[in-house]
Write a protein that binds this DNA or RNA. Structure first.
Lengths: 200, 200, 200, 200
DNA sequence: AATGCTCCAGCTGAGC
DNA sequence: GCTCAGCTGGAGCATT
């Protein structure tokens, strides 16, 4: 007993507790940092929630993303069936899905995107460039020349946005979150263009 | 003490506990019912998750919906700026938002939807009907004649889906959830058309 | 098309949604009821949180209870080892646990409670009765004659409490929750007898 | 436009996203570390859940602790009233609370702990030492000479445990978590000394 | 600003 | 052995 060789157990216990507490503290600190960052984002005029959404998406694995999108497609199909499609037409994926014959169901890796046939990567790049040009020439973002379902449509969008982001304005208006002008919660001018009641 | 007028307190206590337990039990029972329902849905070949999504949306208040959509718009704008728009072009709302002049920011209730100018409720109804006809004539869902951004586009979609839902097939293929054909999780043929790994 | 035999799918979809919404609504209603009940309890002068605790305990299975208590014992032993035992001496179970020889660990169902040897159910009943008598004779609840670790101690407690509950006062003082006399959160007279800041 | 001074907005956006992702990653890493630690604890023969409990307690503010203990007291009183006191006699605080006159309710900072009158810090220290001595002399932990309610009781416990922790055994048996010897869930020898079904 | 509630993710025990 | 449902703890949100 002179040299209690295992007050060690108690020491270990103490050490475990210390380590646990330290780890929890670090986690808490990170929470603080994240909050600070969100504040900074808000202060900069951007929308933290939207950014978080993007971060979450980027964190998804391929299969998670697939599942999520797949579910969303089905939801859209159901909405259409129920007559709930309210100004948000079917997405491309849902559209493509509906156009399949029953027996070519999933698995069967057929051409997939039905129409665009001959669209190449260059076409895409071209569309992007054209979006930039169109912006420079004063066309509006609503004047995308490509039809929905055409992959070039998104590319043109990107080009237009890219150009619009480098035009000298400090923050493009649409990027900014509108001022918190406490909108009367009783009349959200429902359905028109709401703007936020920032907390949901 | 013959008539302890307030063993009542203890009785009350007991009663409170009983009531609480009963309520909690009922809640638990409902959880069970919901699970059963989901099983039934799955058994019927529909996707419970997608249905839940719809239910949730329908439960939203106008302002919640507004906020959610608004956040999504901004996220899309950010994605465009980052070059992440991957085949999913800008939604109408985001597009409309980007087309505004900085000074007509939100609040100012100007015409809102920019272009469609003269589109009336009748036009919408007509588009819906045309969707039904087009389905009957064998056109594909991808052949929606209306341009994105045009509200008639969604109406046509609805019409097409409504018609396609009453054509005699028992469950339209696209409604069904594909068989659980254990997709190799290593190769979700990412981006193509995944189908689900239903649990996510 | 005259007799779309399977607008049934859409009908089913609609029905599923209805049922889901109904179930969720019922659940929500129950939440409301529970809240009302808590309000009622508070209004009656009892402590809803404490009651919830009891309800939760009663809902536990034997094995859950066993596990919970076992964990608590170990926590107590650890606390003792760390010198954290702050006026809350070791519980009986922990005490009993510490007194075992290593090799008679658990499983081995030996006499278990070490000392009380000859205490019978009648002794317990007697102790309970004595608690009632002692209350009637004006003894204080702190004057429990049984030593800790003796099962009769709890029985006496129960008897005393039972008697004290039927003495004509409408709600025994200790049952009541003290008025919300906004205690200065800066000086909770920490450690003495705090009373609540009810939310925690 | 030669030096688009505010592709800066997009750059900022990118930066915000990077920072957010980094912070979230660090948090996730910490979760991993915590899990590793728990595994280590388990491997060492100690009970992670019990340790977590201690860590949580230590993290509590004074007022949180006060509230928690207060609620527990009331729960005990209610249990007593309901005849649920199952071998776990009233705690000191509850006992003290019950012994008050209605009008000296809380707030009024009267002597509080009723009896112990003259017990000093030295008495406490003495009791602790005596616990150590008693352990050395072979007394059992159940032979605590102090009556429940007496603060020296806990001190003696601590002393006894401290001594028992340095006696040369590597891990005192009671510290260890028993092996996972799949206890028959039908007969947890409920109420005796259960040992764990570790997860609850 | 603080607290209570709701939702979600991560973990744990059961079942094929 | 792996997946699945259930649960518990934490984070976000609404409210006062």
């Amino acid at each position: 007993m002179s040299h209690h060789p295992n007050a060690r157990t108690t020491d270990q216990l103490r050490s475990f507790i210390d380590r646990l507490e330290r780890l929890r503290a670090e986690k808490k600190a990170l929470d603080g940092d994240i909050n600070d960052l969100k504040t900074e984002i808000k202060g900069f005029g951007l929308n933290p929630k939207a950014i978080e959404k993007i971060v979450k998406e980027r964190a998804e694995t391929a299969s998670q993303r697939a599942t999520r999108e797949y579910t969303e497609e089905q939801a859209q199909i159901y909405r259409a069936a129920l007559g709930m499609l309210d100004g948000t037409p079917l997405g491309d994926a849902a559209r493509e899905r509906l156009s399949r014959k029953p027996d070519e169901e999933d698995g069967a890796e057929q051409p997939a995107t039905p129409a665009p046939a001959a669209i190449t990567a260059e076409d895409i790049a071209g569309a992007r460039e054209r979006g930039q040009v169109d912006f420079a020439e004063g066309r509006k973002v609503t004047e995308n020349p490509y039809v929905a379902g055409d992959p070039r449509r998104a590319a043109w969008d990107e080009g237009w946005c890219a150009a619009s982001g480098s035009d000298g304005m400090d923050i493009p208006a649409a990027f900014r979150r509108p001022e918190k002008k406490k909108p009367d919660p009783k009349d959200p001018s429902d359905g028109e263009n709401p703007g936020p009641d920032d907390g949901g």
